[in-house]
């Protein structure tokens, strides 16, 4: 089996510059070709400069060796964003037929210190692809760990999604989403993950089978925190491409009306009602009455009493959501274009 991919023995020793290491004695360092008048010139420290010069020598020579592997680890430690080094390391790992499980342990230690680095997560995906389904659980544990420190880490979520789709592990994913949303119902990444699970898990039967229970769950989340945008978007997402079903489900307009009874300026509720009317919902008397009451509560209202309901809601939104006054003005033009 190939030698260890971890740092060489004697890690506790004083750091020895490459130029003084016997195993690199034959290497001629290659300086960076910055030209006579470098721009965005970085004042490299001696250690960084020297390690890079030795790396370039091995990289340009295409030397896929144990010492090259060690040197790439050192460069990565200095600058984990150097994608060239990661690429070369993968070539060396393949040439040496290295133990990729050990490599995953190596990269996980680096990832914990650099959780938002594209190159590290890409390396993990490459490794996981080669290691196969056996490593799915370990990868899920790792992303759980990263997400426990930063619940919205985009790279960790992308990796988790890829592992699910490529290697499996769906059994506990909905429960994981439940746990995260219980901890922070404002965690939009967890809502997005929930959408993936509901729509794509091979164990759940798909969106059509899950929609009813998911609507109940989402309505509950909305009522608990009406100012939380995530469940409002999720709720509409449950009916993506299914306008007729969205209109037919009375729970949708009901939750809007419930919220507006307590907060007549809830933009999300007004906006969803507006969308429902746009796709053809026939408004109930209760809906008409609620909107009329909100409209009349504004002493400066200048709308004609016979303005249609959607236009009235747009006017209300322009008043109570001034940051988006331009957007609501545009939305209003799309109403008149339907008439």
């Amino acid at each position: 089996m190939a030698p260890s991919s971890t740092s060489s023995e004697g890690a506790s020793d004083e750091w020895l510059p490459p130029s003084r290491r016997p195993e690199l004695a034959d290497v001629v360092p290659v300086t960076q070709d910055d030209g006579p008048h470098p721009v965005v010139a970085i004042a490299y420290r001696d250690e960084f400069r020297e390690v890079m010069d030795y790396f370039r020598a091995l990289y340009f020579a295409g030397e896929r060796s144990v010492r090259a592997l060690h040197l790439t680890a050192e460069v990565i430690d200095l600058n984990p964003g150097n994608y060239t080094v990661w690429h070369f390391r993968r070539l060396v790992l393949e040439a040496l037929d290295a133990d990729l499980r050990e490599e995953m342990d190596f990269v996980d230690r680096i990832a914990e210190c650099n959780p938002k680095n594209y190159q590290i997560w890409h390396h993990k995906r490459w490794l996981a692809e080669k290691l196969g389904p056996d490593i799915a659980n370990k990868e899920h544990e790792f992303t759980r760990k990263i997400l426990s420190m930063d619940a919205k880490n985009y790279h960790a979520w992308s990796h988790r999604q890829w592992v699910l789709q490529a290697l499996g592990g769906w059994e506990t994913e909905l429960q994981y989403c439940n746990q995260l949303l219980e901890e922070d119902v404002f965690n939009n990444s967890a809502w997005n993950q929930r959408y993936l699970v509901i729509t794509s898990s091979p164990l759940l039967g798909g969106l059509a089978a899950m929609r009813d229970s998911e609507v109940d769950y989402t309505v509950g989340a909305i009522l608990a925190n009406p100012q939380n945008e995530s469940p409002w978007r999720y709720l509409k997402g449950l009916y993506k491409g299914e306008n007729n079903l969205l209109m037919a489900d009375e729970r949708i307009s009901d939750v809007c009306l419930k919220v507006l009874k307590h907060d007549s300026t809830c933009v999300f509720a007004l906006s969803l009602l507006l969308d429902l009317l746009q796709i053809g919902l026939q408004p109930s008397d209760e809906l008409k009455g609620t909107i009329e009451a909100i409209k009349n509560s504004d002493p400066e209202a200048d709308e004609a009493v016979d303005a249609d309901l959607a236009t009235a809601i747009c006017s209300i939104l322009q008043r109570c959501d001034p940051l988006r006054i331009n957007y609501w003005s545009w939305y209003r033009t799309t109403i008149s274009s339907q008439t």
């Binding site: 965005v40 970085i42 004042a43 420290r45 960084f48 200095l78 964003g81 150097n82 994608y83 060239t84």
Partner: peptide, 15 residues
């Protein structure tokens, strides 16, 4: 544009 300090080594692959 002319000179960046040592801490910019983390952007050495982003010049």
């Amino acid at each position: 544009l002319k000179h960046l300090g040592p801490s910019f080594h983390v952007l050495d692959a982003n010049r």
